[in-house]
């Protein structure tokens, strides 16, 4: 029993616990903690990542409107309380680890694209996402072009023709076209101790 305790923000979990449940080593989790501390104190100094802080890190702009960033934030915020805690951050990032099986990455992405949380990617959701992506670019495609992209995709993916994409159809698409999952792997996560090396000085643990 020790009286010496470090005060950690809500949602902090011990690196040893997180390492036992994710592909990360204890040292890597300590490095991720340094990244987390940086992100979670950039606007509001409370050790939790707020949406504005997440957007600031992604876009260098805390008020950027982006459907996909909103969805990623929502997926990371597993407790659905509007902030990303350290444990949520590590567990969610672990899905992006190069060693995490493809089926976990695929399932995460399906849920991210299932905007209404119905268990299906519906035509109107697909249309909304295509529209959102095109608004990030200056392609200026017409409504008819968006409709055509969505229609072609539905013809290709919705093989049982029920007007929506289920997880089986999604898996078939991913198997045929693995590049769709490319955002789901972050090579940085294998080098996180190099990217955020300051931990080396305060690490208490050898791998």
């Amino acid at each position: 029993f020790s009286l010496k305790r470090t005060k950690h923000p809500r949602g902090y979990e011990e690196p040893q616990v997180l390492a036992s449940e994710t592909p990360f080593t204890v040292n890597e989790i300590e490095a991720l903690h340094n990244l987390f501390k940086k992100l979670s104190t950039s606007i509001i100094n409370d050790g939790l990542i707020h949406k504005e802080e997440f957007l600031l890190a992604l876009f260098r702009n805390s008020s950027k409107q982006n459907l996909f960033a909103d969805r990623v934030f929502y997926m990371f915020d597993r407790k659905r309380n509007g902030v990303i805690e350290f444990g949520e951050f590590v567990r969610s990032l672990s899905i992006f680890h190069p060693h995490t099986p493809e089926h976990e990455k695929s399932s995460f992405m399906f849920k991210l694209y299932d905007l209404d949380g119905t268990g299906f990617i519906q035509r109107h959701e697909l249309k909304k996402m295509v529209g959102a992506l095109l608004s990030e670019t200056d392609l200026g495609l017409s409504e008819e072009s968006i409709e055509a992209i969505v229609e072609q995709t539905m013809v290709e993916v919705d093989t049982n023709k029920d007007g929506k994409i289920d997880e089986e159809e999604w898996k078939e698409l991913v198997a045929k076209n693995p590049s769709i999952l490319k955002n789901m792997t972050l090579p940085y996560l294998k080098e996180v101790t190099l990217a955020f090396p300051s931990f080396v000085l305060d690490s208490e643990v050898d791998d």
Partner: peptide, 26 residues
């Protein structure tokens, strides 16, 4: 390929909002 010839999911995957690599850039 032009965007119109692409699968919608290929197109969507180009969103900056899905590129979490940015979190690691200093």
């Amino acid at each position: 390929r032009t965007p119109v010839a692409m699968n919608a999911f290929e197109l969507i995957s180009k969103s900056k909002g899905l590129n979490l690599g940015s979190l690691f850039e200093k």
